[in-house]
Design a binder for these strands. Structure first.
Lengths: 201, 201
DNA sequence: GGCTACATGTAACTAGTTACATGATTCC
DNA sequence: GGAATCATGTAACTAGTTACATGTAGCC
């Protein structure tokens, strides 16, 4: 059964291993705890769940909401679990990276130094903030069972690994911002570049 | 003139600041030296160049090829340069990250340990290899003018910054692979997980 | 009644990939 | 003649975003 399936489907299956969730829950999961490795809007999630259900990989039960209309809470079927594990066991094929910020950095030699430096400050702060968030979360997960319903061990391990990935990513970004700032501040390579109030150089 | 433009357009303008290039050249540039921060196929590049030219941001001259049909070599117009610098001066808005490998890691608690470990070995090697490539290139660029036509200083600074970004990214990934390997190998969190020859547990 | 949050969906569009199509030049 | 590389384009499709649409329940 190697039906060709978009990656998003497997991402949804993976998130459903953590707990049964509705489309609405999954949408929040993406923005709240998975944004550093995947994201999707509800307009993409609902049709994907429908298709996964049609293919027998997930099933749902209806549940009243605390506040709002009835929820459709999805969980993995055993077929869904098999499909997920089959996918997860294969190494990921290389997906293209796209980082707008790095493209902007490619232009720093053509921008006034102060503009580049202030942009780097802003970017650094953004990533430093996330780094802190992930570190805090990691501490909470790593120290035994702080979650109200303590996570089962496989989920705990998985979440810990994704948090650590977030941490290495963000700390790498912060490191780069610092190195770039230093290069722009001190290096001779930056000497002959446009500056605000120095028409001559 | 704040026409809304896809990011790819600005990426192409940025690459054209390095040197005048044909669509074919740009296509190779993406796979050879820009793949760690952007990529695009020729089927996307040619229409984008046509639109940039129609909008007056680039222009081309026809040039005979060494081997093959006539080339259309594009370069920035002054309007294109202005548009690029205006874009580059604004901090990048946050684009969603998508890393399939991290999603797989989320499932490691459900996979046999050896499968996860061997996957991590493969991934680590991939990133370590790239890290080495970027480091080598950085050394060549950083040590003065090794390029046949020595790069103008702004281009040299820009390229150096993108290489450094590649280096911090890849070394962060390698670091994560090592930490994940250790976690799977030694931690008690991994103790109660499926193993090849233990059907019970 | 009006506002906010919960909840599920569809439609229209944009960005990006894969596949198709064509043709020049060089090397074997 | 055939294969490989250079070179430019279009068509069809997939993935993802933005906008539209609808309705519930609770609070003020």
């Amino acid at each position: 059964m190697t039906t060709d399936r978009p990656t998003l489907h497997f991402v949804l299956l993976a998130l459903l291993t953590l707990r049964a969730q509705s489309g609405f829950d999954l949408s929040r999961t993406f923005t709240e705890v998975a944004s550093h490795y995947w994201s999707a809007r509800h307009s993409q999630i609902y049709p994907a769940l429908a298709r996964l259900e049609a293919d027998g990989l997930v099933e749902h039960r209806r549940e009243p909401s605390e506040r709002g209309p009835e929820r459709k809470v999805f969980s993995l079927t055993s077929g869904g679990r098999d499909a997920l594990l089959g996918w997860a066991a294969e190494p990921a094929d290389e997906a293209p990276l796209r980082d707008e910020q790095t493209v902007k950095a490619l232009c720093y030699g053509l921008l006034p130094t102060e503009v580049a430096l202030s942009q780097l400050r802003e970017v650094r702060e953004r990533h430093a903030r996330r780094l802190e968030e992930y570190s805090t979360l990691e501490g909470q997960i790593a120290s035994a069972s702080s979650a109200a319903p303590p996570l089962p061990d496989p989920a705990r391990l998985g979440i810990l690994l994704t948090l650590r990935r977030g941490i290495t990513f963000e700390s790498g970004y912060v490191e780069w911002c610092d190195a770039a700032t230093e290069l722009l501040t001190t290096s001779d390579v930056a000497a002959s570049r446009p500056r605000k109030a120095t028409p001559g150089a």
